[in-house]
Nucleic acid binder design. Structure first.
Lengths: 175, 175
DNA sequence: CCACCCATGTAACTAGTTACATGATTTC
DNA sequence: GAAATCATGTAACTAGTTACATGGGTGG
């Protein structure tokens, strides 16, 4: 269950409300692990039960707004989890199923769908590259910054790969 | 719900029992959409209820062995689904969460884990490349073969990307 | 005062995982 | 005759998605 650990990491970086976490998951963290606000609230409640985090009404904030912070046992749990080995993700891509269906039952016109996705990948790549220029173009980066850069580079490489692949796919499907 | 559609595709390619499907999912199809036998049996039962597939006791086979084949409404459903647009997958990678945790709480020794994964990716790449040489090295391929090759190339590109990234990660973590 | 954003949640569902269980057939 | 493989399934759980619901605060 990585969502809890993703939330712990995020809360260590900055104690926040569920809402703020959900918004951050729409951005940076969500690029490699996304979640809806419902899931986030549920997992925060579970983590509070287990004593990994604590929430307090935010003084001066809106009424009802709760700020979560990580407790020592949460940090311990995160450390333990992060040093346990786990298998790399499996790709689980609908597009491949569709292509295989196309090959099995005959052309169903996937070229447009590929084009649409190509555009999406290009857009994402552009946004990642903007972040890269903005945050990681200095000559010497701290260890922490280098690691965050590394994560971003995984995203960039993935999008670049998909773009190249999509172009290849277009060529084959448009024959 | 792509698993049902992946199963339909697989059954169109070759009518099979649940067990055979499960074994095939461990290989080719499972490279981009994996499933356990429990899930497969459940989805086959649901598809039979909906009239997408039909099963019959396999004469001459083992007792109890059921062979599934796709009915017209199943093929129709597959065609419809495959021509509906859907968003590309999100990467959901535990490793990225771990790296971010490492950056947030300090070094937790991820270098070994990266090495372990590097080896796994290299092994997968090797196995994909074997398939490529075996099945797709002819000069001219049919449309169907080109599409299956395209699917394989997505896997190859992904593994190559991960290998390059892992080496980069090793360099940064071993500093 | 209306629309939009902040902020939290419940309920119901679908998909995927893990553990357990059973029995037949083939192979050594 | 024992072990491996074929073949099917149930039960219980965890994770993720979709739909619905509520109310306060802010800006035009």
């Amino acid at each position: 269950m990585s969502l809890q650990h993703a939330l712990l990491t995020s809360l260590i970086e900055k104690p926040s409300s569920g809402y703020e976490l959900a918004r951050r998951f729409d951005k940076s963290i969500g690029y490699f692990w996304n979640a809806t606000h419902q899931q986030i609230y549920r997992e925060l409640a579970r983590m509070e039960e287990k004593g990994w985090v604590r929430s307090s009404e935010d003084e001066g904030g809106r009424p009802g707004k709760r700020r979560f912070q990580v407790l020592p046992s949460g940090k311990e749990e995160l450390t333990m989890w992060a040093s346990t080995s786990s298998d790399p993700i499996e790709l689980r891509d609908e597009m491949m199923v569709k292509l295989r269906a196309d090959a099995a039952i005959g052309p169903i016109g996937l070229a447009d769908e590929i084009s649409r996705r190509l555009a999406l990948h290009q857009e994402r790549l552009r946004s990642y590259q903007e972040i890269e220029v903005r945050d990681f173009s200095q000559a010497s980066l701290s260890r922490e910054a280098q690691i965050r850069h590394l994560i971003l580079k995984a995203g960039i490489a993935f999008e670049e790969g998909r773009i190249a692949w999509s172009k290849d796919a277009q060529a084959i499907l448009q024959q």
